[in-house]
């Protein structure tokens, strides 16, 4: 698919993000949602808006668009991106394991169980992703 077309599709997603964010914020302000949804809504709307502005500026300038396309599709950049995800996953797992022990030690059993369950969910997700990717070839 042409890169510009992909960016146009992304613009639709970002616009949707703004709409969802604004809707969540409005629903919270009118009392239909718990308080936490105001933060979520504002964050979604702000991120979506920022990405819309950024992509709009890039798409308006062919030189910038070419540069952005090269940076986004560059194989070394993709490798670095994947490596960063792998590293952050591993660091997260080690940090969570340490947190479980510390939380248990200071008597915060419920928090320790929550972190442990999150870690278990992450492992299950990893196994599912591994199986899917392996079968995909």
């Amino acid at each position: 698919m042409e890169f510009k077309k992909k960016m146009k599709i992304n613009m639709i997603y970002y616009a949707l993000l703004v709409v969802i964010g604004a809707a969540l914020a409005v629903l919270q302000l009118t009392g239909y949602m718990p308080e936490v949804f105001l933060s979520f809504g504002c964050a979604y709307a702000a991120c979506g808006l920022a990405m819309l502005i950024k992509n709009g500026r890039i798409m308006a300038d062919p030189e910038k668009l070419k540069k952005f396309e090269i940076e986004s599709t560059d194989e070394r950049n993709i490798m670095i991106y994947n490596k960063a995800i792998r590293w952050s996953y591993l660091i997260f797992v080690y940090a969570a394991a340490a947190a479980i022990m510390i939380l248990e030690f200071i008597g915060m059993k419920e928090a320790a169980v929550t972190v442990a369950l999150t870690l278990c969910a992450l492992f299950v997700l990893y196994i599912i992703c591994y199986a899917v990717l392996k079968n995909k070839g």
């Binding site: 396309e69 090269i70 940076e71 599709t73 560059d74 194989e75 070394r76 950049n77």
Partner: peptide, 9 residues
């Protein structure tokens, strides 16, 4: 630019 990668690559 010709190969469609960054200069860093």
């Amino acid at each position: 630019r010709t190969l469609g990668v960054t200069r860093q690559t």
